[in-house]
Structure formats: C-alpha cells, structure tokens
C-alpha cells in the first residue's frame, strides 16, 4: 500500500499542479461557469413548486430538491474528471506507447492522475457544498454521511471505469470531442444529475435501475438525502460494487484487445 502511494502519488500531484494550480484563475472560472447551469435549473424548479403548489413532489420538498440539484451537480463535476481526454489524447498523439514502456500499471497511473484532480475538487467543491447544505437543511446523520462518502467513492470508480472504456474509443474514432459532449449529456441524464430518476416513467425507471449510471450520482445523493432505508442502502451499495466488478472486467478485456492492436499496428 505504502509502495503504491509512493509510486502513484507523484502523478496525482503533478496533474493537480499542471491542470489546476498552473491556471488558478481559469480553474475558478470554469467552476463558476459550470454553476450557471444550476441556476437555470434552480429557477425552473422554483417555478414548478410555486405554480404546481407542491409541498412534496415525488417525495422531495423544495429544499431537498435544491440540495439534490446542487449536490448532484457537484458530484457530476467530481466524477466527470477528464479520464476520457487523458486516454484519448495519449492514444491520438501516440504517447501511450511511451507510457506503456514505463514499469507502472497504465490504469493505475491514469487513475492516480484523475484521482488527484478528483481529490482536489472534492476539497474545493464537495466539502464546502456539503458543509453549507448540512448547515442549511440539517439533514444526514454521521452514519448516512459515512455511507454517502463511501457510495460517492464507488461512484467515482464506476465513472472512471466507464470513462476509461469510452476513452479507448479513440482507437477507432477521430471526433472524440463531439462524442465527449454526447457522453456527458447522456451520463447527466441517466445518472440523475439532470433530474431525479423518480421523475421518469416507471418502466424507464426500471431500466435505469439496472444501468451503471445510477451508481455514479443518484445513489450517493439519495443516501445523503436520507431517502433510502438501511436495506435500500445496502442493495444500492452492492449494485455499485457489482458494476465496478463488471466494468473492471470489461476494461481488462478491452484493454487486452486494444494493446494487441497497438502492438500489431504500431499505434
């Protein structure tokens, strides 16, 4: 474990330094920009609760809905951490070969890099948001808080594994930039970051429940809001872990195939 940190921590530090600290103003602006979307959604919900005269909509009070919007947004930022671009850039530029000849695990290295960003973002984004929401809304016991954090970490891993597979598309397609937007929108919709999944019609909810995206955003945020009882928490955490196993296996298989392609064709 200690050795693991010694090997991979420098990658985390270097990435944070190169991507965030080197452009502090830009990083700040970027987050500020991302929050604009929240405001649009905030106003829409506000009107909905007001014109509909709802106290409770699909089990959410207005306050809870706002917490949901803010927290799912923050979680989206943390889980969508650039894995796709790192891999795609290395595949496109051919630098992937330089990284394959180093005596380190490729997945681990990329994970360390994005993990650095995730960790940093968590500190500057999730924690402040959490503290503010906890103070404002007074929800969540220390236990649910622990489950929330655990579930969020699982969400980060699911997102990473999914993005990694997605990034490998760069072996086959050139226009990954466009696809990246599409992927973002799709994950946002299917993970519940855009609108809580309970708003979907029942049959669609059934489908969404068995897809991995729910585990990225919806599960941790619902745990935070105390919407799950202990049995549901357990089932959802297990589902998340199941997806980590499945996606991990898929990664392994795709990677093996991609590497073979790389070594045969020379990049």
């Amino acid at each position: 474990m200690k050795k693991w940190f010694k090997t991979y921590l420098p990658f985390s530090r270097a990435t944070v330094q190169a991507h965030i600290l080197a452009y502090p103003f830009e990083t700040f602006m970027y987050f500020f920009g991302m929050t604009i979307g929240i405001f649009v959604v905030y106003y829409i919900w506000k009107i909905i609760y007001a014109t509909g005269g709802y106290n409770l909509l699909e089990g959410f009070t207005f306050h809870e809905m706002i917490v949901y919007v803010v927290l799912s947004f923050a979680a989206m930022q943390v889980t969508d951490n650039g894995t796709v671009w790192i891999i795609a850039d290395e595949i496109k530029s051919g630098n992937i070969i330089m990284n394959l000849i180093k005596p380190i695990n490729y997945h681990m290295r990329v994970f360390a890099e994005v993990g650095g960003i995730t960790g940093f973002l968590t500190m500057v984004m999730i924690f402040p948001v959490l503290i503010i929401t906890i103070l404002m809304v007074k929800i969540g016991t220390p236990i649910t808080m622990m489950f929330f954090i655990f579930s969020l970490i699982l969400g980060v891993v699911i997102s990473f594994l999914f993005d990694f597979i997605f990034g490998m598309l760069a072996f086959y397609v050139k226009n990954l930039w466009g696809i990246g937007f599409g992927k973002y929108a799709l994950v946002r919709l299917l993970s519940g970051a855009l609108i809580p999944l309970v708003f979907f019609p029942k049959p669609i909810q059934g489908v969404l429940n068995v897809l991995p995206f729910k585990g990225i955003i919806y599960t941790p945020v619902m745990i935070f809001l105390g919407k799950y009882n202990s049995e549901e928490i357990l089932i959802n955490l297990l589902t998340q872990m199941m997806w980590i196993a499945v996606l991990g296996l898929m990664n392994y298989l795709f990677w093996k195939k991609a590497i073979t392609k790389l070594t045969i064709q020379g990049g």
């Binding site: 397609v173 466009g178 599409g182 973002y184 799709l186 919709l189």
Partner: peptide, 15 residues
Amino acid sequence: DFLIGMLSFFIVQSS
C-alpha cells in the same frame, strides 16, 4: 466521425 459528432449534439439537445 461526422455522424457521431452530430449524434452527440443531438443527444445533448434531446436530454
């Protein structure tokens, strides 16, 4: 690539 790119923005708008 062209079709995929178009599809992506199609998805963005559809969501």
